[in-house]
């Protein structure tokens, strides 16, 4: 997708306005040039890149576990009606509450190290995969279930060869939302307990309230969020290129 001239004009206009505002109150609004200088300083002196890379590594590890757990749960309630009847209302309940509120409890259970961050990401993220995977499983079984039975495909072969490929477009649609939630979870965790990473960069900016740093850190977070979403979107399209895109 190439950006339209109007979109570029909008961005250019915003940057120009920001630069202009910075000439009046740089302590309040900073400016694009000041932020660029600050980003270079953070990269040189503040370990910006290792901190961001570490955060992304933790996020990806936790996210992988969360996606596996959530998808598996979704598969189970999509496949077995009894499990769906028994647990779906409670899973829906978990889906509509701010699970990030559980972070203080996670601190009590897991301390403030890497394990705590992983647990936080899993807790906040896994639920987003459950319903896409359940819907995908149901659709997949509806379309291919009889055929699979006729050919006596069952057990793990049914799961790996029939259900998962059929459910893939739905799972892929859930991935984009879940990676954004995972980023939020890891940053909140780091911010709260002071575990070094993007979260502590935000914490430092929040403590010092230096306008250049505040904007620089927000831009770094934007870049990480945009990069992750784009990568997951791209990977998802590659994975399910042969199927129609679905939205959930």
């Amino acid at each position: 997708m190439t950006p339209s001239p109007r979109s570029l004009a909008g961005v250019a206009l915003a940057l120009a306005g920001w630069q202009l505002a910075g000439t009046f109150r740089p302590d309040f609004t900073s400016s694009p040039t000041l932020v660029a200088t600050e980003l270079v300083r953070l990269a040189r002196e503040g370990d910006l890149l290792p901190l961001v890379a570490g955060t992304v590594a933790t996020l990806l590890a936790g996210w992988t576990v969360a996606v596996t757990l959530g998808t598996l749960t979704g598969f189970l309630i999509g496949r077995y009606r009894l499990l769906a009847v028994a647990f779906e209302p409670y899973l829906v309940a978990l889906y509509s509450v701010p699970l990030i509120a559980m972070v203080p409890l996670m601190v009590i259970w897991f301390g403030i190290g890497e394990g705590f961050l992983l647990a936080t990401v899993v807790l906040a993220t896994a639920i987003t995969m459950v319903f896409p995977a359940a819907t995908g499983t149901r659709e997949s079984m509806r379309a291919y279930g009889e055929l699979a039975r006729a050919y006596q495909v069952s057990g793990h072969r049914l799961l790996l060869r029939v259900v998962l490929p059929g459910a893939l477009p739905y799972v892929v649609a859930g991935l984009r939302i879940s990676v954004q939630r995972a980023l939020m979870a890891v940053v909140v965790g780091q911010f709260l307990v002071g575990h070094p990473g993007l979260g502590t960069l935000i914490g430092d900016a929040r403590a010092r309230l230096d306008a250049d740093e505040v904007f620089a850190v927000a831009l770094v977070a934007l870049a990480v969020g945009a990069l992750l979403t784009t990568l997951v979107g791209w990977a998802g399209r590659r994975l399910s290129a042969w199927r129609p895109e679905v939205s959930t």
């Binding site: 909140v188 979260g199 935000i202 929040r206 505040v214 977070a221 934007l222």
Partner: peptide
Amino acid sequence: LTPRIALVPLIAL
């Protein structure tokens, strides 16, 4: 796309 938590310093400022 910016995780909303990253706006906390800006809001505090």
